[in-house]
Design a protein around this nucleic acid. Sequence first.
DNA 1: ATTGCAAATGCGAATCAATCTCATTTAAGA
DNA 2: TCTTAAATGAGATTGATTCGCATTTGCAAT
Lengths: 133, 133
Amino acid sequence: MTEAELKDAGLKVTLPRLKVLQVLDNADPHHLSAEDVYRELVNADVTVGLATVYRVLTQFEQAGIVTRHNFDDGHSVFELATEEHHDHMVDLDSGKVIEFVNEAIEQLQHEIAEQHGYELVNHELVLFVRKAK
Amino acid sequence: MTEAELKDAGLKVTLPRLKVLQVLDNADPHHLSAEDVYRELVNADVTVGLATVYRVLTQFEQAGIVTRHNFDDGHSVFELATEEHHDHMVDLDSGKVIEFVNEAIEQLQHEIAEQHGYELVNHELVLFVRKAK
DNA sequence: ATTGCAAATGCGAATCAATCTCATTTAAGA
DNA sequence: TCTTAAATGAGATTGATTCGCATTTGCAAT
Ligand SMILES: [Mn+2]
Ligand SMILES: [Mn+2]
Ligand SMILES: [Zn+2]
Ligand SMILES: [Zn+2]
């Protein structure tokens, strides 16, 4: 349940936070910008400030509840942190985002970090693609 | 020589462009933001507008002379496009950027795109790492 | 149920990278 | 040297995100 997630993260259970979670849960293209979330809320007659949406999303990110991405450039998009890590592919023509999982690539990244005396904490991989002729 | 690069790209050989190229050439941490480049120029008594630096860097990117990255978040950094493609590793503690090349990862990315009916045009891979204990 | 108070919120102002506008300068071919 | 389209500089502007602060609210202890 969503309330538990908030409490576990040491965050008070407030209406804005619950509503933001709800929007992320029902998101169809499940990568939403802060403005996207804000618009959905306004649309649903939930009085909430844009600044609060930004604050809440950032807190959720720190709590591991959501993941932030910077696909193209300029603005961030968020998605609920699912149990399964995945990377993204952006169709340059349509802008559509495709998710994929590849264990071999994940493994290689750890090895590369190790070869340089580091441990991998996180990574961001985005493939920019075009429909094959 | 640098003039040739500009001409090949269909760009006039102007003083601002030459100077920007020069700064990128001598850049020690060779990932510079537009502001970084601008400051270097001002520092070297080259009268150039910040807007011009942004314009020139974008043109260079389109011409394949420089590569743009969005490591952390928020702003872009540029580096001269070397003959050899490479990816990056960011030390979360020091902020230092390490470059690496891994053919296996490059190969896998092409395969993944293909598996989804696409062809890989470009990609961005950044590893966020911490010194191993 | 009431109270106390730090945490959270809303709203407008402020920031900051990046882009745009437009009058002026300049590269480069004729 | 002349001509003209491209390039530039300075400042205004945009757009996403953050700040400041007065007000509200969750919630734990009465
Ligand atoms: Mn995703
Ligand atoms: Mn590099
Ligand atoms: Zn991954
Ligand atoms: Zn690569």
